[in-house]
């Protein structure tokens, strides 16, 4: 038992690093994912993840597999797409989903073109699927910093963000915080995706945000609690995913997300707040 569950982390430094990195991502990803879900933007995370690609690719072309260049590139590309689609949605007849789709598709096409111009297929795989088992000091620090910053900003932004999501008209009538709140939140999404793609790749970075969030919502009808549960699910998935991938000799990133997916499916059935089991075993109705 000990052999399976603990010894890989004692024996190998890369396993410890992977665990710390994945936990940092899970903690910051939980509130981001919950609010993406509540704002009906679950697919936005995916779109933004694609939008980041050309920035990271340009960074890669300029400086090779450099953490700084790829992070900066990804951040710039992501925030540009977020700003552009936000602005276009505000000032034209197009809704945010349409503008975001337009901009991320342009961005993605650009990204793939840039990568294929210079790099080989291996490089593309690194961008898409990350390398959680090869986190160096700098990357680990970046993940921790992003996680800390995210939690700090969430503490600041929590009330207006809840109000902006729940009743934007009310927030607009009592304060001008609506637009900046929306914008800062989108920046947080980008920031976490950029952090995520170093460890899990652009495609799976969204998974560690959205799957725990969706699973948590099936258990409770309270935002704060849901965030806590989502964090827990993310952390447990990270740990179990790493153990399984180590034993089975399969890539860690996808396995972590698969464990998240497994927990989501279980929640779908057993979730206390709105799981499917309630439908199968209806209880007698109450008197009042």
């Amino acid at each position: 038992m000990f052999e399976t569950l603990v010894s890989p982390f004692i024996e190998f430094e890369f396993m410890r690093r992977a665990l710390v990195g994945a936990i940092a991502l899970s903690i910051a990803g939980a509130p981001v994912g919950i609010f993406l879900m509540l704002r009906r933007m679950s697919l936005t995370g995916d779109a933004m993840a694609h939008a980041i690609l050309p920035g990271a690719a340009i960074g890669y072309l300029i400086a090779g597999l450099s953490l700084g260049a790829m992070t900066a590139g990804g951040l710039i590309a992501g925030i540009l797409v977020a700003l552009a689609s936000g602005a276009v949605a505000r000032f034209t007849a197009l809704r945010e989903d349409a503008t975001l789709a337009a901009f991320y598709l342009i961005s993605l096409a650009l990204g793939v073109t840039i990568v294929s111009l210079r790099g080989s297929n291996i490089d593309l795989l690194h961008l898409l699927f990350g390398s959680v088992l090869a986190l160096d000091d700098a990357t680990l620090l970046l993940l921790a910093a992003i996680s800390t910053l995210t939690l700090f900003i969430f503490a600041l932004l929590y009330r207006p963000l809840v109000m902006e999501t729940l009743d934007p008209g009310f927030l607009a009538s009592v304060s001008g915080a609506g637009a900046p709140t929306q914008l800062i939140f989108l920046c947080l999404v980008v920031l976490n995706l950029v952090g995520g793609f170093h460890a899990l790749g652009t495609l799976l970075a969204v998974g560690i945000m959205m799957l725990p969030a969706a699973a948590a919502r099936l258990w409770v009808a309270d935002v704060t609690l849901a965030i806590g549960i989502a964090m827990l699910i993310g952390i447990v998935s990270s740990y179990l995913g790493l153990v399984i991938s180590y034993r089975a000799g399969v890539p860690s990133g996808p396995v972590i997300i698969l464990v998240c997916g497994g927990i989501y499916l279980l929640s779908l059935v057993f979730g206390r707040s709105s799981g499917l089991l309630r439908l199968l075993r209806p209880r007698r109705h109450l008197e009042a």
């Binding site: 509540l38 809840v162 999501t165 729940l166 009743d167 934007p168 008209g169 009310f170 919502r217 409770v220 009808a221 309270d222 935002v223 849901a226």
Partner: peptide, 10 residues
């Protein structure tokens, strides 16, 4: 009012 009534709040 554009209230999201599915939002989990008391």
């Amino acid at each position: 009012a554009e209230i999201d009534r599915s939002f989990p709040i008391s």
